[in-house]
Amino acid sequence: MENKRLCKSRNDRIIAGVCGGIAEYFNWDPTIVRLVFIFCGVGILAYIIAAVVMPDSPYL
């Protein structure tokens, strides 16, 4: 059984890797996650909070 953790992506990052990390965790397309952040009201504040709270991925 795989032990998954929600972490910022090191491979698929544009600003801080939050959307890339969410996409890796749920096995989704990162572009879809970015569009949801932009258009569905999740917003900049949630992204900033996630960038501060989420740890960096231990994998390169």
Rank of each mutant, 00 (worst) to 15 (best):
M1F: 14
E2I: 08
E2T: 14
E2F: 09
N3F: 11
N3T: 11
K4A: 08
K4D: 03
K4L: 13
K4T: 01
R5H: 15
L6D: 01
L6Q: 04
L6I: 03
C7N: 13
S9Y: 02
R10C: 12
R13K: 14
R13C: 13
R13E: 15
R13D: 07
R13M: 13
I14R: 10
I15H: 13
I15M: 14
I15F: 15
I15K: 12
I15N: 10
I15Q: 15
A16H: 13
A16R: 09
A16K: 13
G17A: 11
G17F: 03
G17V: 02
C19V: 08
G20V: 09
G21K: 00
G21Q: 05
G21T: 02
I22M: 11
I22F: 11
I22P: 00
A23Q: 12
A23V: 04
E24K: 00
E24S: 07
Y25I: 04
F26P: 04
F26V: 06
F26M: 06
F26S: 01
W28R: 03
D29K: 03
D29T: 01
P30D: 09
T31W: 07
I32Y: 09
V33F: 00
R34T: 04
R34E: 02
R34F: 03
R34C: 01
R34H: 07
L35G: 11
L35I: 05
L35E: 15
F37M: 15
F37W: 11
I38K: 04
I38H: 10
I38D: 05
I38N: 04
F39Y: 14
F39I: 14
F39M: 09
C40G: 08
C40A: 12
C40N: 13
C40L: 11
G41N: 15
G41K: 06
V42P: 04
V42S: 00
G43E: 05
G43Y: 02
I44P: 05
I44L: 15
Y47W: 05
I49P: 06
I49L: 12
A50Q: 10
A50K: 05
A50C: 15
A51E: 05
V52D: 10
V52H: 13
V52M: 14
V52G: 03
V53L: 15
V53D: 03
M54Q: 05
M54A: 02
M54P: 02
M54D: 00
P55E: 01
P55I: 02
P55W: 10
D56H: 03
D56G: 07
P58K: 14
P58Y: 00
Y59K: 07
Y59C: 11
Y59H: 08
Y59I: 11
L60V: 08
L60T: 06
L60Y: 13
